[in-house]
């Protein structure tokens, strides 16, 4: 029987892969943003489950996870601002429409 930290580590691997799948296959900008949130959360889960068994009380992993949380909030704000700008410009949030910089 796996103990809780290793099970959480495996779950975080599965969640990260599901998020990657979403980023690779979907074209709606908001869906992609939410998939990125899934991936960041999987990373947080891995950090917390590993930090639990580290020497020194295990505060480091939690503080790193807190930083990831702050960056995720910043990413959500900037990303949603970009989505609104894209929608205003193109009338749709299909990211295939945003290819001005493509060669």
């Amino acid at each position: 029987m796996p103990d809780a930290p290793s099970a959480a580590l495996l779950l975080s691997a599965v969640l990260f892969s599901i998020g990657t799948f979403g980023v690779l296959t979907r074209r709606g900008a908001i869906t992609i943003l939410m998939s990125i949130e899934l991936m960041l959360n999987a990373g947080n889960l891995a950090l917390i489950s590993v930090s639990r068994s580290l020497p020194g009380g295990g505060a480091d992993g939690q503080v790193l996870a807190l930083f990831v949380l702050a960056i995720a909030a910043a990413e959500a704000a900037v990303g949603l601002g970009l989505v609104i700008a894209l929608f205003r410009l193109k009338g749709s949030i299909d990211i295939d429409l945003a290819r001005l910089l493509r060669w």
Binding site: T25, R27, G28, A29, I84, F87, G91, I93, D94, I95
Partner: peptide
């Protein structure tokens, strides 16, 4: 944004 289904962006 209140997206209509056509403007949501599907999946290739």
């Amino acid at each position: 944004l209140n997206l209509q289904p056509a403007a949501r962006g599907g999946s290739g």
